[in-house]
Write a protein that binds this DNA or RNA. Structure first.
Lengths: 146, 146
DNA sequence: TGCATTAAAGATATTTTTGTCCTTAATTGT
DNA sequence: ACAATTAAGGACAAAAATATCTTTAATGCA
């Protein structure tokens, strides 16, 4: 469904949100361990998210990644679009370039319904809500250690 | 959503179904042109579908691909599972290996709803139905020529 | 100022997916 | 039997996605 990059991105942002207290910034080290993703690849993805203003970063001692007030209120769809683009929500289910209402592919309508469902869910779900769920121990991002 | 291979597979099977008359067999040549997919890659995919009994084939003069009685009644999900596997319907939305009801990822329930929607649609949609729609000109698989 | 720390950026490597080509095997018609 | 045709299968190539490594730039602290 989502690319590996996008999965890591979502996991990272949720984790950052869950650890967000004013002023606290998380290092790549901490983030990649928390979400069990490859360190350097995680760094690349955080770079992209930062460029797309999905999150904020600061270099140097005591630097790291964090969400500012506005970023804390972003929705899942903002992350997905920043990493995987809008194709998932606009592209044809069978990969046809010319697929449209007037020249629909055989699964056009049925696929559109699914896609709209997915889009709606991603638009309605906030990062904050998922971060809290993680913080409360109601969900996990990595194997629980004994 | 689906891999390129899977998109080609679905397009190919729908086309074969749409041209299915008793005894008629379609060549790779005809199929790949009808669905605007690379010839040799299409051949590979048809091989896999044939091995998985999604369609039938015959070598030699007047050979080609066709759907037998039973295969004509298959559902979309049969093609998707043969090519992309069941991961789309069973895997975690965030790619976590250990995600489950007892250790759910943050989007577990919301994602499951979407996934079940998709699965239901694929289980309910028959190849035959899509083939007829194509045959009737109510849908297309390639750019219409003037 | 200089050093330690941390993210950004660029270069490279590996793996997977997608795509192509060539040889082999099966089938049919002559 | 033989030639023509068509799918099957194996080998190879190219492109894209994923992953790693190294250098550079920014920041804070002594």
């Amino acid at each position: 469904m989502f690319s590996k990059s996008c999965e890591y991105a979502i996991r990272a942002v949720i984790y950052i949100s869950s650890e967000s207290k004013t002023g606290r910034k998380l290092s790549i080290q901490e983030i990649h361990e928390a979400i069990e993703a490859p360190e350097h690849f995680t760094a690349k993805i955080l770079q992209i998210l930062s460029r797309n203003r999905i999150l904020s970063s600061q270099k140097g001692v005591h630097g790291g990644f964090y969400l500012d007030k506005i970023q804390g209120e972003l929705k899942l769809i903002d992350i997905v679009e920043a990493i995987d683009g809008k194709t998932l929500f606009t592209g044809c289910g069978l990969g046809l370039k010319q697929c449209s209402e007037t020249e629909p592919c055989p699964i056009h309508d049925k696929f559109k319904a699914i896609r709209n469902n997915l889009k709606k869910m991603l638009e309605e779900t906030t990062i904050e809500e998922l971060g809290k769920k993680l913080k409360n121990g109601k969900s996990v991002l990595k194997t629980l250690q004994e």
